[in-house]
Deep mutational scan, measured.
Amino acid sequence: TEIRININGVTIHVRDASEELKKLIEHLLRLGADEKEIREVLHRWEK
């Protein structure tokens, strides 16, 4: 699944996002995570 996240005008594009990762990101956004925090989570997730 491919997702695009727009945070304050900055688009983060994620290829091959699992449903689990998608739910995690949606949850973090609801909690008010910023772009830097989302990128950090994505970076750690890929490892």
Rank of each mutant, 00 (worst) to 15 (best):
T1M: 11
T1R: 11
T1A: 10
T1P: 10
T1H: 15
E2A: 08
E2D: 15
E2N: 13
E2K: 06
E2I: 07
E2F: 00
E2G: 06
I3V: 11
I3L: 09
I3G: 04
I3D: 04
I3S: 04
I3K: 03
I3N: 03
R4Y: 10
R4Q: 15
R4E: 13
R4L: 15
R4V: 12
I5K: 01
I5N: 02
I5M: 05
I5Q: 02
I5W: 00
I5V: 10
I5R: 01
I5A: 04
I5Y: 00
N6L: 09
N6C: 06
N6S: 13
N6R: 09
N6A: 11
N6F: 04
I7E: 04
I7R: 05
I7S: 05
I7K: 04
N8T: 05
N8Q: 10
N8A: 10
N8K: 08
N8D: 10
N8V: 05
N8Y: 00
N8H: 11
N8W: 00
G9N: 13
G9Y: 00
G9E: 07
G9I: 03
G9F: 01
G9V: 03
G9H: 10
G9M: 04
V10G: 08
V10L: 12
V10I: 11
V10E: 09
T11F: 02
T11L: 10
T11C: 05
T11H: 15
T11M: 07
T11K: 09
T11Q: 12
I12W: 00
I12G: 02
I12H: 04
I12A: 02
I12N: 01
I12M: 01
I12D: 02
I12C: 02
H13Y: 02
H13F: 03
H13G: 05
H13R: 05
H13C: 10
H13V: 12
H13W: 01
H13I: 10
H13A: 07
V14N: 02
V14D: 02
V14W: 06
V14S: 03
V14F: 09
V14G: 04
R15S: 09
R15A: 13
R15Q: 11
R15Y: 13
R15F: 12
R15H: 15
D16V: 07
D16I: 06
D16S: 13
D16A: 09
D16C: 06
D16F: 06
A17I: 12
A17T: 11
A17V: 12
A17N: 05
A17K: 02
A17Y: 08
A17L: 09
A17G: 08
A17P: 12
S18V: 07
S18T: 11
S18H: 09
S18F: 04
S18L: 04
S18K: 07
E19M: 08
E19Q: 09
E19V: 09
E19S: 09
E19A: 09
E20M: 04
E20V: 08
E20L: 06
E20K: 09
E20G: 07
E20I: 06
E20D: 13
E20Y: 04
E20N: 08
L21A: 02
L21V: 06
L21G: 01
L21C: 02
L21W: 02
L21E: 02
L21D: 01
K22N: 09
K22E: 11
K22A: 14
K22H: 12
K23G: 14
K23Q: 15
K23I: 10
K23H: 12
L24A: 12
L24Y: 12
L24K: 12
L24M: 13
L24V: 15
I25A: 01
I25N: 00
I25T: 01
I25R: 00
I25E: 00
E26N: 08
E26L: 11
E26V: 05
H27G: 10
H27F: 06
H27T: 15
H27E: 15
H27P: 02
L28H: 10
L28A: 13
L28E: 03
L28R: 06
L28Y: 07
L28Q: 05
L28F: 07
L28T: 01
L29S: 05
L29W: 02
L29R: 04
L29P: 00
R30A: 14
R30L: 15
R30N: 11
R30K: 14
R30V: 15
R30P: 02
R30T: 14
R30G: 12
R30Q: 15
L31D: 08
L31N: 12
L31F: 09
G32N: 06
G32C: 02
G32P: 02
G32Y: 01
G32S: 04
G32V: 02
G32R: 03
G32H: 04
A33G: 06
A33K: 07
A33Y: 11
D34C: 03
D34K: 07
D34N: 12
D34M: 07
D34S: 15
E35I: 10
E35R: 02
E35P: 07
E35G: 06
E35F: 10
E35M: 09
E35Q: 09
E35W: 14
E35Y: 13
K36M: 14
K36E: 10
K36F: 11
K36Y: 10
K36S: 10
K36L: 11
K36I: 11
K36A: 10
E37M: 14
E37F: 13
E37L: 14
E37P: 00
E37W: 10
I38Q: 00
I38H: 00
I38G: 00
I38T: 01
I38K: 00
I38P: 00
R39M: 09
R39L: 13
R39W: 06
R39C: 05
R39P: 00
R39V: 06
R39Q: 08
R39D: 15
E40I: 03
E40S: 04
E40F: 01
E40D: 13
E40K: 06
V41G: 02
V41P: 00
V41N: 06
V41R: 05
V41H: 08
V41A: 14
V41D: 01
L42T: 02
L42G: 00
L42S: 01
L42Q: 00
H43G: 08
H43C: 08
H43T: 09
H43W: 02
H43K: 10
H43F: 03
H43I: 11
R44K: 13
R44V: 10
R44T: 09
R44W: 14
R44D: 15
R44I: 14
R44Y: 15
R44M: 14
W45N: 07
W45D: 06
W45V: 07
W45F: 11
W45H: 11
W45Q: 06
W45E: 06
E46G: 11
E46N: 07
E46V: 09
E46Y: 04
E46I: 12
E46C: 05
E46L: 13
K47D: 14
K47F: 03
K47I: 13
K47W: 02
K47Q: 14
K47P: 11
